[in-house]
Amino acid sequence: MSEYPELDAIMNGIRARSETAFATAYRCTANPLASFANGMVHDQRFAEDAVQQAFLELVKAAPRIKGDGRSLRAWLFRSVRFTCLDELRRRSRRPEHLTATVPEVGVDPGLPPEFDTDPDLAAAMSQLTSQQRTVLVLRHVVGMDGSEIAEVVGGNRVAVYAMARRAENRLRTLLDSTEAEDA
């Protein structure tokens, strides 16, 4: 089957809406999903809600879910991705909210101490396109390979690699320029 044997084993339970199967799926995927959402929107509270939202949608769609554990994982990531894109669009329409949160990055009192994100990194990330950010986060935070990313964002493996390389270069350039300004 796929590289997620635990998820493969519960697919029938998911389709039958078994509560234990959903608990297993949550245990296997909730943290990567939340990390992905956090990388996209940079809001841990929202990231947790997005994970919750994805699983509630999965309850509705469960009987129609096809494939193995890998497909289920990709389905959940797609769901979170759309939730995040909606949120980003919503926030960009209300810039006052955006300016209220962006300067707080890294010093958000709600975040535990290990999450004091480098403000330069956050600023650079916010200048990438949402597609570039998606690919970067899935690759470097979640640790997906090219074909898995392609399943989430669409397109094929080669296109994903090209997109990732361009995003990485852009991020490095942005960080270098901010470092130069600091110095």
């Binding site: 509560e19 959903f22 947790e48 509630l56 986060v137 470097h140 490095r172």
Partner: peptide, 30 residues
């Protein structure tokens, strides 16, 4: 390489009470 920081910068560990709350709501939805 700044990309090495991405993971530590954005990684989220959902805490136990949050997880329990989520699972309870998922169960209710089911």
């Amino acid at each position: 390489d700044p990309l090495d920081h991405l993971s530590s910068a954005y990684r989220v560990e959902i805490e136990d009470d949050t997880r329990d709350r989520h699972l309870a709501e998922i169960g209710a939805a089911i």
